[in-house]
Amino acid sequence: MNRAQAAFRAHPYISNVVGYTALFSCADLFQQRVLRRQDSSAGVDWHQTARVATVGFCFHANFNYQWLRWLERMLPGGGVKAVTGKVVVDQLVAAPLTISAFYIGLSFLENKDNLFQDWKEKFWTSYKTGVVFWSTMQAVNFSLVPPMARTVFLGGVALVFTIFLCHLRQQDHKLE
Rank of each mutant, 00 (worst) to 15 (best):
Q138L: 14
R33T: 12
L92I: 01
N62V: 11
A53E: 09
H47I: 12
G79F: 09
I99G: 01
F133E: 02
H47Y: 13
D45P: 05
H47A: 15
N16V: 01
V160F: 04
D90A: 06
A7I: 13
W119M: 12
S41H: 07
G79M: 08
A50N: 12
G77H: 09
Q138W: 11
V52Q: 00
S135H: 02
T129L: 03
D118L: 00
L35Y: 13
Y65W: 00
L109R: 01
F102M: 00
K174H: 13
N111L: 10
Q138E: 15
R3A: 14
R33P: 01
M1G: 12
M1P: 08
F133T: 09
Q48N: 04
V87N: 00
F142T: 07
N16R: 10
V131T: 08
Y103H: 08
G105E: 06
L97E: 04
L29A: 06
W134A: 00
W46R: 03
L35G: 12
V18R: 10
A95N: 09
G56L: 04
F57L: 14
N114W: 10
R69F: 09
M74A: 15
F123V: 01
A22I: 14
F63Y: 11
A4N: 06
Q31P: 05
S107F: 02
M137S: 14
L97F: 02
T84H: 00
T98L: 08
S41Q: 07
V132M: 15
F153Y: 14
K122G: 02
N114Y: 13
T151W: 01
H60Q: 02
V88E: 07
F63P: 04
F59W: 04
I163Y: 07
D172Y: 08
D90T: 04
A22D: 11
W119K: 06
Y20Q: 10
H47N: 14
L144D: 12
A95W: 10
W70Q: 14
F153G: 09
V140T: 12
I104D: 04
L92G: 06
V160E: 04
L168K: 15
V17T: 03
H173Y: 11
R69I: 06
A53C: 12
P96W: 02
F161Y: 04
D39F: 00
Q38E: 07
V88M: 02
A7N: 14
A82H: 05
A4R: 10
L144R: 15
Q91E: 05
E72S: 09
T129R: 01
D28Q: 08
F30Q: 03
Y13D: 07
K174I: 10
Y65D: 02
V152G: 11
D39V: 05
H167P: 12
G85I: 08
H167I: 05
V34S: 01
F30G: 09
D118G: 05
G105I: 04
V52E: 03
T49H: 12
W134G: 04
F59V: 04
V52F: 04
N111H: 13
F8M: 11
L68F: 13
S100A: 14
N16W: 05
N141W: 06
F8E: 08
L106N: 06
Y127F: 14
R9G: 03
